[in-house]
């Protein structure tokens, strides 16, 4: 059991600690630490330090193999003005979002049911371990072969890669659901939808958020591979072209642009969502 969890990288799921036991006392701080102002300062400093180190290294090497940060920024600017970079980013991001939504919804439903039903868990645990261990590349190639070099194939391939990871995390969460709170909902005959939104899902939020965060990072990496293998647009496709031309500057420019976009989404969407879902712990 623990080996699966470990492999899936779900071991770092925050405990839903603010539940009943700690209700009367001080609420336990969530492990996913809230960055203070100082925290941001440190983050910024480390990134700037990295850029400086890169600049120095590039000057020492002095070759096309390692372009300077300035050259990379210039390439980024050039392709942004020509529209090539934003278009590629947009297309890839659309695939990421589609695969993310599909994987999160399916994975959450399966994970929740596996956590609630012993029988279903026994039935699906084997296939789950298998799915966790199939390399992303294999799933992607098979999807292209079976579904053709289509948009659907990309989404399906990427979602299939992510679903098992979501399942493992959410299953953990649904096992941790407090039966005592469910009893309250039953006693007051709380209707199903209200029960889901006000009693069950809040207990799963820490797990869903952890899963979403890991998911975004994992999914965009797989999407690039899928694009490289079988699409004629998007960041992955552009990278394959730059690869053929030995254009390291552009490779770095596109990669950094996309990584920045993911970080913005993390800070602009994921964190605020987490804050809202967890505001009762303040």
């Amino acid at each position: 059991m623990s080996s699966i969890r470990h492999r899936a990288g779900a071991g770092d799921v925050p405990r839903a600690s603010g539940r009943l036991e700690t209700q009367a006392g001080a609420p336990t701080r969530w492990l996913g630490s809230r960055p203070s102002q100082r925290g941001w300062l440190w983050r910024g400093a480390s990134l700037i330090g990295l850029a400086v180190a890169w600049e120095i290294a590039a000057r020492i090497v002095g070759s096309n193999m390692l372009p300077t940060p300035v050259a990379v920024l210039a390439a980024m600017y050039r392709d942004t003005r020509s529209g090539q970079l934003p278009l590629a980013l947009g297309i890839t991001m659309a695939r990421v979002v589609a695969a993310f939504v599909v994987a999160m919804s399916i994975g959450t439903v399966i994970g929740f049911m596996m956590g609630r039903s012993r029988k279903l868990n026994l039935l699906l645990d084997g296939p789950l371990v298998l799915a966790l261990n199939i390399p992303a590349l294999v799933i992607t190639i098979l999807c292209y072969l079976w579904l053709g070099l289509t948009e659907v194939a990309v989404i399906v391939a990427v979602a299939l890669n992510k679903i098992p990871v979501v399942v493992v995390t959410v299953r953990e969460g649904s096992r941790a659901i407090d039966a005592r709170l469910l009893a309250v909902a039953q006693v007051y005959r709380v209707p199903r939808t209200v029960r889901l939104w006000r009693v069950i899902l809040p207990q799963l939020y820490p797990y869903l958020i952890a899963s979403a965060r890991n998911g975004l990072a994992l999914i965009w990496k797989i999407v690039l591979v899928a694009e490289l293998l079988g699409r004629s647009n998007g960041v992955g496709f552009e990278l394959s072209v730059f690869f053929q031309y030995f254009d390291i500057t552009s490779i770095l420019a596109y990669t950094l642009a996309f990584a920045a976009l993911v970080m913005i989404i993390e800070a602009g969407v994921m964190r605020p969502l987490e804050k809202r879902a967890m505001r009762w712990r303040e």
Binding site: R180, Y188, P191, V194, R198, P202, W280
Partner: peptide, 29 residues
């Protein structure tokens, strides 16, 4: 039916008012 357990059993993510209204959800629908 009204029931009071040994522990308060409030939903920690709902405010005091929302916790009370949770019991009215059935009536409201």
């Amino acid at each position: 039916l009204g029931m009071v357990f040994q522990e308060p059993r409030l939903m920690p993510w709902l405010t005091v008012g929302e916790n009370v209204r949770l019991a009215e959800a059935e009536r409201l629908t």
